[in-house]
């Protein structure tokens, strides 16, 4: 009890004595774990190499400068592929995520007992595997190239988009839906008039947010042979062509910045 009677005075504190002690013990344990981990890392670090870090970084940095601008000729197509993978991947993901979200939301699912668990399983399983791993799997199934990357990005994004969307569906104002239902509207009409207008801002926000993430993710897909600019990055790294690497990193940075800019603009326009 947080209220303690002491000689007629009612003292009050946020927590009682036991929960106070438990919290104190938790903090102590946490601090001890942190200090111990610090020591383990420190013992396993090769300090001789660490001492060289500055010099090595400067060396690579020096070799990477200036970027090999002429290499840009060979980058236009891969960066275009990368953007296409991100955009089309997001588009396909959204097409598949919308029905999954409606099946997963507890207020729109046709069956809580059978359909909803399946929809939730789709969400969890697609979300829990990184797109790089999806790409690895797909390269061995459909072969290397843009198509594998596209599918990898799509699959990875279904769960993300469907999860955020079904949470938005569950948060809608039910009285608006009730009002549409009371007019004698059919199930599909209730969806189009009562639910869709309420989740449209969330949907648009999710779409541009995921597109933004997918631009970044699709730049590395080439590392496993799934198309895009990552392929050039890997081959440049393999031959230690540092000036090319620095140019590729610059191009990726620029693409991401443009992506962020566009998605911020779109989100601002909706909300």
């Amino acid at each position: 009890m947080p209220i303690i009677e002491k000689s007629g005075v009612k003292a009050w504190q946020v927590r009682d004595r036991n929960s106070q002690l438990i919290r104190w013990a938790m903090w102590l344990l946490g601090t001890m774990a942190f200090v111990f981990s610090w020591k383990v890392i420190s013992d396993n670090t090769q300090w001789a190499i660490m001492g060289n870090i500055g010099a090595v970084t400067m060396d690579i940095g020096g070799r990477a400068m200036p970027p090999r601008w002429s290499y840009m000729d060979q980058l236009w197509l891969p960066i275009w592929d990368t953007l296409n993978i991100a955009t089309l991947g997001t588009l396909f993901a959204l097409i598949m995520a919308v029905p999954v979200a409606f099946l997963a939301a507890s207020n729109t699912t046709p069956s809580r007992l059978f359909v909803r668990p399946i929809a939730l399983l789709i969400i969890v399983s697609t979300r829990s595997v990184n797109s790089l791993i999806w790409a690895l799997l797909l390269v061995s199934i459909v072969g290397p190239g843009v198509f594998a990357g596209l599918i990898a990005i799509s699959i990875r994004s279904i769960g993300f988009c469907a999860k955020l969307l079904y949470e938005a569906i569950e948060e809608i104002d039910e009285t608006q839906v009730e009002a549409i239902r009371a007019t004698g509207a059919s199930g599909w009409q209730v969806m189009v008039y009562g639910i869709v207008p309420q989740i449209l801002p969330a949907f648009a926000g999710i779409a541009v947010f995921r597109w933004d993430i997918n631009i970044r993710e699709s730049t590395v897909l080439g590392l496993v042979g799934a198309g895009g600019i990552g392929l050039q990055l890997q081959s440049s790294l393999n031959v230690l062509a540092w000036p090319q690497v620095s140019l590729i990193l610059l191009v990726i940075l620029l693409a991401v910045v443009i992506g962020e800019f566009v998605s911020a603009k779109v989100r601002g326009a909706i909300i």
Binding site: D173, A179, I180, T183, G184, A185, Q198, L200, P201
Partner: peptide, 22 residues
């Protein structure tokens, strides 16, 4: 219980949903 993001006109017309096809 109006559909907040729809226009006044759309809200009024939604009363006809039972008579109009999807």
């Amino acid at each position: 219980a109006l559909v907040e993001r729809l226009s006044v006109m759309e809200n009024v017309l939604s009363g006809r949903l039972g008579y109009v096809g999807f």
